[in-house]
Amino acid sequence: MEIILAIMIGGLYAAAVYMILRRSLVKILIGIVLLSQATNMLIFVSSGITRGNSPVIKAEETVLSQPHADPLPQALVLTAIVISFGLTAFALALTYRAYKSVKTDDLDKLRSAAMGGEENV
């Protein structure tokens, strides 16, 4: 199963990178979302996976009974998910704003629109 998941992660990365390399802003945005999905999954998987037992201590016990899923990567991924949610929302707003100010989705047009203010002239 780990190998299958690793391939899935690879697939997600491939899709994300392909999207990020497009000229269209909205595609880049989707690429970034996929990238963070892939990364979250990577953290989750590479620290090892187990089925079923969630890291919740049962009502009658004081310590977590074995076997259990590693709680730390879960906490990390949760943090990462929330952070990337914030970043995504911001990036979305930025894309929208950029689109509104340049009226194009094409990054190359954005470049030429900003000529004189951007890069070498």
Partner: peptide, 10 residues
């Protein structure tokens, strides 16, 4: 990229 990430995870 995808291949490398797969390899890295494994």
């Amino acid at each position: 990229t995808g291949a490398l990430m797969t390899v890295l995870v494994m």
